[in-house]
Design a protein around this nucleic acid. Structure first.
Lengths: 201, 201
DNA sequence: GTCTATAACTAGATAGAC
DNA sequence: GTCTATCTAGTTATAGAC
């Protein structure tokens, strides 16, 4: 015992409990108890409760999401193919952090005034700007927002479905790509026509 | 002052604070202070904090949602037209309770082990069962779940958009109906063909 | 690196006066 | 119907021993 991996073990248990019982209802006492250590030990490794939850996001989602954004911004102006690849990359990145994405969605209110909450919000908004046209029709903006939401929420809904998580992720990606394709063409969805220049209205 | 409308005033302030700061972070002390009364006064009108939040949902969403479900179950077997009308009615019902729907989404973790949270979850799952075919392909199930999620989340996203809330609601309904139509036909989305019998694969 | 002990505070809830 | 006063139990966080 008493290894140097305590920090990691704290993170594992914290994520598990945060996901299971929610951020606010999970106390540091509970985390410490389940690890068989004391609260004071937690405070040695993390300055505050916020510091602990932030550390969970940084490596698993914030960093990867930034990588997607950086790639996207290096490929402007954004063609439809680029948009679809953004969705593809982002889907892969959140697929590696399913419990955290679920946690984020179920605890928006709690994370709202934590710095990590604001940072995640910024990333998602940036991605949305990248896949939607600024002056698109309202329904097309809804389609793009829905695409991102669908990829997120499908990771942890459809409980009745006995489908493999990876299958669900792929299905969600497919639907998201359809939505963005429809939005890109600026009209009712359908299999992509010749070139992507048709403009709605 | 000291009218008989205190109960209503408590509900108004509670919803405002719950929506703004989250369920857990809003204390009864804050609600009482903003009303200029004491905590004890709150306890006269509501047995517990849970009782207070439950009262907010019962009239504004739980009842109306049950009405939609009752209508849907009276119109089985469910045709595409019925499904679209379910979406239409549900959209109207949540459109009347926007702050509450937002609150529900942002506080899922907090509401999870409150009885009202479970009840709302049941209603949404029931609606999902009604609009999706039990043995549909995975992507079609995702489309149906996404349709409901889209109607919910569009009520309180697209912040940059200066669009009128009612316009956003209608746009979300339109996209949701497209998704369910595509799922109903069991293939890639598109304007509804002649009759709804074309089957995917 | 981990502990004990405790400070400083806030929460939800109740009893009983008015 | 609203108040004062109080209770119990919980929280984050820190100081300092080992």
């Amino acid at each position: 015992m008493s290894r140097g991996n305590t920090r990691q073990r704290i993170q594992d248990v914290a994520l598990e409990l945060f996901a299971e019982r929610g951020y606010e209802k999970t106390s540091l006492r509970e985390i410490a108890e389940q690890l068989g250590v004391t609260k004071a030990a937690l405070y040695y490794h993390f300055k505050t409760k916020e510091d602990l939850v932030t550390s969970l996001f940084e490596d698993l989602v914030l960093g990867p999401a930034d990588a997607v954004i950086a790639w996207a911004e290096a490929h402007q102006p954004t063609t439809l193919e680029t948009k679809l690849e953004i969705l593809n990359r982002y889907s892969a990145c959140i697929g590696n952090a399913t419990p955290l994405v679920r946690f984020m969605h179920e605890n928006q209110a709690a994370l709202r005034d934590l710095s990590i909450g604001e940072q995640m919000k910024t990333r998602i908004l940036t991605l949305l700007q990248l896949i939607k046209d600024q002056d698109a029709a309202l329904t097309d903006q809804v389609r793009c927002a829905s695409a991102l939401f669908t990829m997120h929420s499908t990771l942890f809904t459809l409980e009745g479905s006995n489908a493999d998580p990876e299958e669900k992720r792929k299905a969600a990606l497919e639907v998201a790509q359809e939505l963005v394709t429809a939005a890109h063409h600026g009209s009712a969805p359908g299999p992509a026509p010749e070139t992507g220049n048709a403009r709605h209205e």
